[in-house]
Amino acid sequence: MAGEILVVFTTWPDIEMARVAAHQLVEEKLAACGNIVPGVESIYRWQGKIETSAEVLVIFKTTAARYPALEARIRELHSYEVPEIIALPIAAGLVGYLSWVKDSCS
Score class of each variant (00 low, 15 high):
R75H: 13
A18P: 02
R73T: 00
L25T: 01
G39T: 01
K102P: 00
A64V: 04
A65I: 05
A22G: 07
V8T: 00
E84K: 06
I36L: 05
R45M: 13
R19K: 15
K29M: 08
I85Y: 10
A64F: 03
T10I: 03
E55Y: 01
I85V: 13
K102L: 08
G48H: 08
A64I: 07
V7W: 10
T63Y: 13
L77N: 02
R75F: 11
Y44W: 13
A87E: 03
W46M: 03
E51M: 04
P38M: 14
I59L: 15
S42C: 05
V40M: 14
L88F: 14
A69G: 02
A92N: 09
K29Y: 10
A2Y: 11
S99Q: 13
G34M: 10
A31T: 00
S42T: 11
V26H: 02
R45K: 14
L98P: 00
A31C: 03
C33Q: 08
M1G: 14
E76F: 07
L6D: 01
I15M: 11
A54E: 14
T62K: 11
R66W: 04
A2G: 09
F60V: 05
V8H: 06
L70C: 11
K49V: 12
E51Y: 10
A31M: 10
E84A: 08
T10H: 05
S79I: 02
C33F: 10
G96Y: 06
W46Q: 02
D103I: 01
V40P: 02
G96H: 12
R66N: 11
I74R: 09
V7I: 15
K49G: 04
Y97F: 15
A21C: 01
